[in-house]
Write a protein that binds this DNA or RNA. Structure first.
Length: 271
DNA sequence: CCCGATTCCTGTAGGC
DNA sequence: TGCCTACAGGAATCGG
């Protein structure tokens, strides 16, 4: 489950293999992702080299001389650097083949990911230009959240998960951040005090940075019954713990649906 | 403008 | 054992 920390880990993993490398070929096996992969890439990318690999929110950006490739992993996407002759597996939808015999291979069973092309500054792209600040940006602070939330009637959980407010806070991080901040997820965003937004801002920064430090271990993996709980799952206080005891006060963790998403909270610790 | 609902998709898990 | 259904989720877009 690629949350922001997994995307950043992916970026760090692939960047050294891509930087300054020249593209020799583009293979689209299934272009039906969130949006169609532009078939024009097949002709336009070969011959270009990758100047840099950056990230904005959950979008990876491969900067090239004539534009930028913008990639999103959706909820089941992953990327690997492989030898170009490595046999393809099911759901290997896209290859960026390099001059040196390696390739970047995009794998995405649920096809919620996307691969787009931007002729100009990718940060000005329609999908990126309105994104909120990164969690580690000083722009994200209690005052900012308080200002943005005035007169909003949406729940605080929906508000903090809105990528136009702040990027990278998925369903799991939202529940965990609200627990750390002691805020009930059902409260109206517009009625929360500035002091409490300071706590929430701090909580978001802590949760996301801790996950990045741990190599972006998937928070989602912990629900898998493969005996390999995610590293970060050890630190989950409420997510997925319906009817279990709160680790802080012993009360029973509650479950509810907010914005069509499973939500978990401690009724005693979160008011 | 605001906000809740819908939509895309497939692997996994639970019920019978 | 196997079929069927529910569910999970990022985020744009639709609809009231």
């Amino acid at each position: 489950m690629p949350e922001l920390p997994e995307v950043e880990t992916t970026r760090r993993g692939i960047a050294p293999h891509l930087k300054n490398q020249c593209i020799s070929k583009v293979i689209i096996r299934n272009g039906k992702l969130r949006w169609p992969i532009p078939t024009s890439l097949i002709r336009s990318l070969p011959g270009q080299h990758i100047i840099d690999v950056t990230r904005r929110g959950k979008y990876l950006i491969l900067q090239m001389p004539k534009g930028a490739l913008i990639m999103h992993l959706g909820m089941s996407g992953s990327m690997r650097i492989l030898s170009a002759d490595e046999p393809v597996r099911k759901h290997d939808h896209f290859d960026l083949v390099l001059d040196n015999g390696k390739c970047l291979r995009f794998h995405d069973p649920r096809r919620f990911g996307s691969i787009l092309w931007s002729k100009t500054d990718p940060l000005q792209h329609k999908l990126l230009i309105k994104l909120g600040p990164e969690p580690d940006d000083d722009l994200l602070c209690g005052d900012y959240l308080w200002q943005r939330s005035r007169h909003k009637r949406v729940t605080i959980k929906s508000f903090i998960m809105d990528s136009h407010v702040v990027v990278g806070v998925g369903n799991i991080y939202a529940s965990e951040s609200l627990f750390r901040a002691g805020i009930n997820p059902k409260r109206a965003a517009g009625k929360i005090s500035k002091v409490r937004y300071e706590r929430l801002s701090d909580a978001v920064k802590e949760v996301i940075s801790a996950a990045i430090r741990q190599g972006g271990t998937s928070l989602k993996d912990f629900t898998n019954a493969d005996g390999k709980p995610g590293y970060f799952s050890q630190q989950l206080n409420v997510y997925g713990r319906r009817d279990e005891d709160c680790l802080q006060c012993g009360a029973t963790i509650k479950h509810c649906t907010i914005g069509q998403r499973a939500s978990y909270y401690c009724p005693k610790c979160q008011k």
